[in-house]
Nucleic acid binder design. Structure first.
Lengths: 224, 224
DNA sequence: GAGATAAATGAACGTCATTCATTTATTGGT
DNA sequence: ACCAATAAATGAATGACGTTCATTTATCTC
């Protein structure tokens, strides 16, 4: 069968007459509802059915505005990106700006780790908020004196660390409990115990701060 | 109805007689089959049905040996951990050992990113391979002169970076293509272009190397 | 009004992980 | 030899879930 060409001599269908039914739905509303749903029920509660119900609509209606659940996740991601604080890059010394940005970035995505697997592999094309962040960060690096060629690798490295740390922030306090195997891992068990008199003291925040300082110092040395 | 107490005067049911049907299945076999399935079909292809079929068995039979699909993922994770190369910690200078370990760790989990969200939050209790790795790494840090209290935070920071970088390694080459919005992000777009004459040159490996060097230098300064 | 348009509906579908009553195979005790 | 106990394996069923599609509903232009 021949391809269904959309009418010869026309690149697009002519919009001749008629307007649709007044829509209750749009991408902004869907995004807001998805965010509220996630904050109340977590990502397990974010189903197309639940999303539709929270909007007072049938699940299939959503597909007139988003092509898939993955697109909903992309919309949520973009919204979160707009909340990351990169303002320091135009006002603070580079080190402080990076720290502020990294803490804000990690803080936001620590509560949205299921998005990380999506983001980390998602092209920034048509993601205005994400691009706005990258633009501001890039400018900050330029003004701090980084060679242009080093900037993207630096950002990639920092983002990798931030995403990894966001996962960490959700680890349970007893993640390093060696249990029955404590005897066979004496040095590790002792190092864990040394963190505090309380058992199972997971050092997510301390570790983030230490690693971030190391990255800032090491990458900062690339400035000319 | 009263609780079904397992017989008064006995804490456990007496094992009186009888042995089971000869089992074709066990956790090792399930793990091996899961790994092979993943390497051939990816994590989308790892379903309980496909796993059962590759073992010549009904899906429900798996549940006599694992309690859930999540447990299958844990088994796979443990197997992968045993393949991470931490041997340098007993033979190489600390910097080189960390580098070798980090590259090996990232290389393995870059092909298993769906596991990262599970691992990062999974207690190490009863995970012998994982604990063996932590023990060796801890020993390496001790011998290099790190104060005991600093070691776990250092490992946590390095692991966060490694996991984040593993995601990155799977990013498409055009992830930084700003597309139609290139005009509104001039500095960022230029920085991306500066990476090479070819468009869309994603610097995952370069970034990993740079960030790792920074972390090694920064954390290494904590030695006494 | 007539006809075009897009949004919304509700009933499906296919894929999953998981449960459960039942059957099958194996063994030790009598 | 047989019986009782045990655990493995089966197959049918369940309940989510994302998604599709023919149909209906509401709105605007001509």
């Amino acid at each position: 069968m021949p391809a269904p060409t959309p009418a010869p001599g026309e690149t697009k269908a002519r919009r001749r007459a008629g307007r649709p039914m007044a829509s209750v739905l749009n991408q902004d509303g869907i995004t807001a509802a998805a965010l509220e749903l996630v904050s109340k029920k977590g990502y397990d509660g974010l189903t197309m059915a639940a999303l539709a119900r929270s909007l007072g609509v049938a699940p299939s209606a959503l597909y007139n505005h988003v092509s898939s659940k993955d697109e909903v996740l992309k919309l949520v991601e973009e919204d979160l990106m707009s909340k990351v604080d990169f303002g320091g890059f135009s006002t603070l010394p580079w080190e402080d700006a990076v720290r502020q940005w990294a803490y804000s970035y990690r803080g936001i995505f620590a509560r949205h780790t299921p998005l990380i697997s999506v983001i980390a592999v998602l092209p920034v094309t048509d993601a205005p908020q994400t691009l706005a962040m990258y633009e501001a960060v890039t400018e900050g690096f330029l003004q701090a004196g980084f060679p242009e060629k080093q900037i993207i690798p630096c950002i990639v490295a920092l983002e990798a660390y931030i995403f990894g740390a966001a996962f960490d922030a959700n680890a349970p306090a007893d993640i390093f409990d060696s249990g029955r195997l404590a005897d066979s891992t004496p040095h590790f068990t002792s190092a864990v115990r040394s963190l505090g008199p309380e058992r199972n003291n997971y050092p997510s925040d301390l570790a983030f701060s230490m690693g971030l300082d190391a990255l800032i110092a090491g990458l900062g040395a690339l400035r000319v």
